[in-house]
Design a protein around this nucleic acid. Sequence first.
DNA 1: CTCGATGTATACCGATCGGTATAGCTCCAC
DNA 2: GTGGAGCTATACCGATCGGTATACATCGAG
Lengths: 188, 188
Amino acid sequence: MATSGLTPAGARILDAASALFYDQGIHAVGVDAIARAAGVTKKTLYDRFGSKAELIAAYLRARDERWRDWLTRSVESRTDDPRERLLATFDALGSWMRAENPRGCAFVNAFAELPDPDDPGHRVVAGQKAWLLGYLTDLAAEAGLPGPKALGRRLLLLHEGATIAYGTGVVPRAAAEARAVAELLVAA
Amino acid sequence: MATSGLTPAGARILDAASALFYDQGIHAVGVDAIARAAGVTKKTLYDRFGSKAELIAAYLRARDERWRDWLTRSVESRTDDPRERLLATFDALGSWMRAENPRGCAFVNAFAELPDPDDPGHRVVAGQKAWLLGYLTDLAAEAGLPGPKALGRRLLLLHEGATIAYGTGVVPRAAAEARAVAELLVAA
DNA sequence: CTCGATGTATACCGATCGGTATAGCTCCAC
DNA sequence: GTGGAGCTATACCGATCGGTATACATCGAG
């Protein structure tokens, strides 16, 4: 996980919390259960993170960082052709989902449980969605395609749709399906 | 709401629970708060619904029914042309979201909080996603378009993506954006 | 006239919620 | 060689969790 700058116990807490939050949901997991799973005292948990809300935000920030690294690295290592890179984002998404997203998008799931716009976790989710839109828009611009902003939005729809369709189990190969649509979009 | 077959108090409970569950999340709302909002005793709540899990399932079933009615009625009243009906699903989605979905898809949100496949609520969500896929596939078949199954899957991606992008606030006019992609898909 | 269904009111249950307090241990940096 | 950071252990706080028990009022159908 993204445990840089954390004490050993802090890292174990974040790891345990990440797994529990993603698997069971945020409100369904108590701080006692997290401390128990991390082999740590509640005091240590509160010394490191201050509150459950901040621990949730740390979980989301760490996952966001890992996802961005994975996506950008996968795309950049695949090809230099900007147009091909746009499509490569869907291959990266497919691998990520198979490996890490059996229960759907962690950010969407967290969003469902954090309605308060002032909640630090809520803000992290909003930030990651905005970043992905910006990233796709930038790739579209670099590819020299017409209307990069609109194209970015449409590619974002496909990314989000693939994540939901895969996570809910209705479309097993959702990322490949989304890529096929993206190919049509890029060719147009 | 879909309060047919319910006693007056039962209907008030379902209405109150629906609003609270959608606005705040399922685990964040206690049965005491629901009973209070409905102007009802906890005893009455348990007499009518048996458990919180069943009340959640009832909430999702009622919303599913309302959504299906809205979608099919909107589409059917719009046009008889099957190809145009495929696109009309996105207009219906846009109106629905503006009126009822400020916080994203209720089913996706519930899914995030109900990981257990045996949970009655979990099953309702899986059912509604499968239904939508079937509906879009049927429309594609009626339109005589090639590869109706794949087309149905791709339209589903666009529906789900639009819902998420709108719900998280990244793409305000997400349904119109999704419709534009669908037009390309139908023309191909 | 009565009986069952639909309610209300109040009180209770053990468990868990997020969070805090106090005391003591180890180990490394200054 | 001392002090502070990081940690464990245990106990506690009031509030809320989902769910149950008991007693009583109303009202329409048989």
